[in-house]
């Protein structure tokens, strides 16, 4: 019960890789990228006294003659095929508006979801009227980016059984730059819970589901209590994710799992204390390094 009070400490960077510091392609605003005039100015750069200068902190990318800086701290810039986790903010005619951590709200069209009753069902005017029964304001969904509009807004689809409405679980909101792009963003972790690492930085933790009812089309959510053991695993994973994010470690199934393993000796609620966080992130990085080489 006792409250843990402390003096703030200056945050140290926990990193086993020194090479990250002398990487040439990382710039901060005002850094001169090149003084060669043969290059074209892309996003995140400006020309100052004929020198190409960075206007954001991030990584320099060069495509032929075009130089861009991809910012590290940013909102989500979606690409086709990205897996996202989002929250419904509005129900409109034939579409839902979805909050996905991008600059503009994304849209999920009624024609881009699987309705109960099979894939080939025709969408009637009645479906339009009962849209709120499927997804209402505040609901969480997992989806895939179907297309990107010219203004950068995303159009989503859930036309697969793995996407759809999310049931009981915990959402963790992190920076999209921390999510590592992978073949699959859905993982059933061996520690007893499942995770969806949305490319938009929203991570969904949920108890590993049993048999799924295909007829429901992903709109059925179980409100049965989750067992205490599952809860503990989910809470631990949540705190591990926050610890990794606080120390800017890339998130993917292996890093999350290693962090989970390094944290088992601590109580779940202690993981977020700075010194414990530092310790388990250090252990995780060590394990990741060993695995790589």
């Amino acid at each position: 019960m006792a409250a843990d009070m402390r003096l703030p400490s200056i945050r140290k960077a926990v990193s086993l890789l020194d090479s990250a510091f002398d990487r040439k392609d990382l710039v901060v605003p005002g850094d001169v990228i090149t003084s060669d005039t043969g290059f074209m100015r892309g996003h995140g750069t400006y020309v100052d006294e004929e020198k190409l200068t960075a206007s954001v902190a991030g990584e320099v990318q060069r495509v032929d003659k075009l130089i861009c800086v991809r910012p590290l701290k940013t909102r989500f810039n979606g690409e086709v095929g990205d897996v996202i986790v989002g929250r419904i903010t509005e129900v409109q005619q034939k579409r839902w508006k979805v909050e996905t951590n991008s600059r503009l709200d994304s849209v999920l069209l009624l024609s881009a979801v699987n309705l109960p009753g099979g894939e080939l069902r025709r969408r009637s005017a009645e479906d339009e009227l009962t849209m709120r029964e499927y997804l209402q304001e505040g609901d969480l969904i997992s989806a895939e980016v179907q297309s990107v509009f010219s203004d950068g807004a995303l159009s989503l689809h859930t036309r697969s059984l793995k996407y759809g409405k999310l049931g009981q679980g915990v959402l963790v909101q992190l920076s999209p730059s921390l999510i590592k792009r992978q073949k699959t963003h859905f993982h059933n972790l061996p520690c007893g819970a499942s995770i969806i690492l949305g490319n938009n930085g929203f991570v969904w933790l949920y108890p590993t589901p049993g048999q799924q009812d295909e007829e429901a089309g992903g709109f059925y959510t179980s409100l049965e209590p989750v067992s205490l053991a599952d809860r503990e695993v989910i809470s631990r994973l949540r705190n591990c994710l926050l610890a990794l994010a606080a120390h800017k470690v890339l998130l993917y199934d292996t890093s999350v799992l290693y962090c989970y393993e390094s944290s088992v000796q601590h109580q779940v609620k202690d993981i977020l204390k700075p010194e414990v966080m530092e310790e388990i992130v250090m252990l995780t990085q060590q394990k990741l390094l060993e695995q790589e080489g």
């Binding site: 929250r87 903010t89 304001e137 505040g138 609901d139 969480l140 999310l166 049931g167 009981q168 679980g169 915990v170 959402l171 959510t221 409100l223 209590p225 989750v226 205490l228 809860r231 503990e232 809470s235 631990r236 949540r238 705190n239 109580q267 779940v268 609620k269 993981i271 977020l272």
Partner: peptide, 23 residues
């Protein structure tokens, strides 16, 4: 904003004295 299912999850957790962040 919190969805209905998330609310249920939080509610049951508090009933079991284990909150979302482990407290």
């Amino acid at each position: 904003q919190v969805s209905e299912a998330e609310k249920v999850y939080i509610l049951h957790g508090i009933r079991d004295d284990l909150r979302v962040d482990g407290r």
